[in-house]
Simulated scan of single mutants.
Amino acid sequence: MTLTIKELTDSVGSDITPRMVRHYHQLGLMPQPERSPGNYRLYSDQDVQRLQRIVALKQQGFQLSHIHKLLEAEPEAEQATLMAQLQQQYRSIIQQMAQLRQTASALEGLLGRDRPCQTTQAEVLSQLKLLEVETRLGGLEKLWHGLDAQVHAHPEAFQESLQRLLPDLSDRSEIEVDLLSKLVLACGDVSLVQFVRLGNQVLAASRTAFKSGCQVVVDVLTVSGAIDQTRLAHLGCPVQILIDNPHITSAAEAEHAFWQNHAWKDRLQQLPTGCAIAIGYAPSVLLAVCEAIHQRIIQPALVIGMPIGFSHAPAAKRQLMASGVPFITVEGTLGGGLLAATALNALVESLIEKPDCHCYLGQ
């Protein structure tokens, strides 16, 4: 089967035009095609596959010169070449992100100033147009001169700063806005809001579960230490630590321990129906939870899945979002025990004012 250049671009899609294909011919990215008796270019299925690969690599941010090297690499060297190009592309993206994060931090440092600082702040707002240049040159110190002198006169007004820094959340419920605000304050990164995902009516499900005194299950002791034991005790919600080894204090240790000790896997499969699960360390715990949900071995009321990791954690979070169970997660590699505990605490706090006592200590 042969295709005209228009049929080729239509089959590939992604806004590819015949003009772009002709440009790829000139660069050597696409081989010169056969010609019809009328001198029209004719393309094969192999040409379709090659163009699709060019488009995919370009969408990942590769330069055309890099794409040419990848396409021309010998099959046995192709994977090594691809990995080298991916590492180069990753370093470039990280450098851009670092520059943007530095600029964003400087803007946050200005826009997040509360009212006692605004008089001094007004004097430097005219310099904002130079902020990107100043950031690249590392000359931000003069921007802070005079500003930081004001911070010793009063405590920081977190809510006032958040109102300026958070994106428009007017379409979110009050509980969700409070949850997102607390997560931002827990990590100091406003961009986190873009990655937080709530699904399957998790806010309503959490209120029902906690009001009924559901069991709260966390993956490690560190998460347990960060959750609001006072409110949970008053709601009648007992807390269970899945990996209850006090010597486990990192994500790597929790991951390794869960794989080594089948008792904890067995304990996971015996969790009571309607429990609330909060995972902040080991991605394999969340993967096991999702598998148990899929096999209908456990039926939690909600899952807060925020483990740390670079391959398993993103995959586990995707499985959680597809599980059908009410969930809260943070897409990608972002996460941690503090964020998981903060999310759980925000849900519980929406139900009950903090009691002025420590009665949970005797339980």
Rank of each mutant, 00 (worst) to 15 (best):
1 M>P: 03
1 M>N: 05
2 T>E: 14
3 L>N: 02
4 T>H: 03
7 E>H: 07
9 T>K: 05
14 S>Y: 00
17 T>L: 13
22 R>G: 07
22 R>L: 13
23 H>V: 11
26 Q>R: 15
28 G>F: 04
31 P>T: 01
38 G>N: 12
40 Y>I: 11
41 R>W: 05
43 Y>F: 12
45 D>P: 00
46 Q>C: 09
49 Q>A: 08
50 R>A: 07
50 R>T: 01
54 I>R: 04
55 V>Y: 01
56 A>W: 00
56 A>D: 03
57 L>H: 01
57 L>K: 09
59 Q>W: 04
61 G>S: 13
66 H>F: 09
67 I>T: 00
71 L>Q: 13
75 P>T: 00
76 E>Q: 15
79 Q>C: 12
81 T>K: 15
87 Q>K: 14
90 Y>C: 11
92 S>F: 06
93 I>E: 11
93 I>R: 02
93 I>H: 03
94 I>N: 02
94 I>A: 04
95 Q>R: 12
100 L>M: 08
101 R>E: 04
102 Q>Y: 04
107 L>I: 06
109 G>T: 08
114 D>V: 07
114 D>H: 01
114 D>N: 07
120 T>D: 04
122 A>C: 14
125 L>K: 01
126 S>D: 14
129 K>V: 13
132 E>I: 09
133 V>M: 06
145 H>A: 12
145 H>L: 12
146 G>I: 00
154 H>N: 11
156 E>R: 06
159 Q>D: 12
161 S>L: 08
163 Q>P: 04
166 L>S: 05
166 L>H: 03
166 L>Y: 01
166 L>C: 07
175 I>C: 11
180 L>I: 13
184 V>S: 06
195 F>R: 15
196 V>H: 00
200 N>T: 08
206 S>Y: 01
222 T>H: 07
226 A>V: 07
229 Q>K: 15
229 Q>P: 06
230 T>Y: 00
232 L>I: 09
237 C>M: 12
242 L>K: 15
243 I>A: 11
244 D>K: 08
245 N>G: 05
254 A>P: 10
261 N>F: 06
262 H>F: 09
268 L>Q: 07
269 Q>T: 08
272 P>Y: 02
274 G>R: 15
276 A>T: 09
277 I>D: 05
277 I>M: 12
278 A>N: 04
281 Y>G: 14
282 A>K: 14
282 A>V: 09
284 S>T: 10
285 V>H: 05
287 L>I: 08
290 C>D: 09
292 A>G: 07
300 P>R: 14
300 P>Y: 03
302 L>W: 00
302 L>D: 05
306 M>G: 02
313 A>V: 13
317 K>T: 03
317 K>N: 11
318 R>S: 08
319 Q>L: 13
320 L>Q: 08
321 M>K: 12
323 S>V: 06
324 G>E: 05
326 P>L: 13
329 T>V: 03
330 V>R: 07
330 V>L: 13
331 E>A: 15
333 T>Q: 15
336 G>S: 04
336 G>I: 11
336 G>Q: 02
337 G>Y: 03
338 L>H: 02
338 L>E: 01
341 A>W: 00
342 T>A: 13
346 A>L: 10
349 E>I: 06
351 L>T: 10
362 G>N: 10
